[in-house]
Amino acid sequence: MTAAPAGVAALLALADQRLPSGGHVHSGGVEEAVRGHLLTDGPTLRAFLHRRLLSVGRVTAGLSAAAVGLTAATVGRLDAEADARTPSPAQRAASRAQGRGLLRLARAGWVGPHVDLVWADLGARPHHPLVLGCAARAAGLGAGEAALVAAYLAVTGPATAAQRLLGLDPVEVAVATLDLGAAVDAVAREAAAVALAAAPPTGWHALPDDGDPLLDLLAERHAARGDRLFAS
């Protein structure tokens, strides 16, 4: 067994759901899927998580990887790329709310992402993947690690929400996310490769842009409800 590469502790911290950046109030569509009886048990949770990984996971992994190389001059362009890949206004709001939360933590944790960018350059409510990429950079991590955290969070956040809402066996939920491990790795690897090959900012049009109308619809229906437990 080889020693873990440098920066792994920071990687684990960024991927930790206990990181106080507001993720726990977002279900990633799970609450609405449970309401609609689309998500009812372990097998339907697995299907939901896999589907979310291949859409939201790919997109946020690509954006996070690209954000590692962000400069003050390119923030606006990557923000627009994120909007373009997030057609649901409710999902955009959820992404920006979580970006705001992570930015509060990042400001406290690191002086800035790097010499060509200060936290204020990101604005007050940046998309979550942009902040994640910058935080990864600040922590000494690269595009691959940023993509990995994004892809992982695309699965684990909703998994925890499903556990709370359905009272599923926590071990069953944990195993569902463990079984997705190879798929998470692959999504992150491919997204990071695209981001690293793309010349910023014009090359960013090639970043993953997989969509899922079902998740968009769930997000919009959820946002219209007055009686919701989760913010998204």
Binding site: R18, P20, H24, V25, G101, R104, R164, L229, F230, A231
Partner: peptide, 21 residues
């Protein structure tokens, strides 16, 4: 009004982000 993700205790103690916002 803030949503607490089914976990009111977490929202005031462990991850207070939504309330701070």
């Amino acid at each position: 009004a803030v949503q607490t993700g089914c976990c009111p205790h977490t929202a005031i103690r462990d991850d207070i982000t939504a309330n701070l916002d």
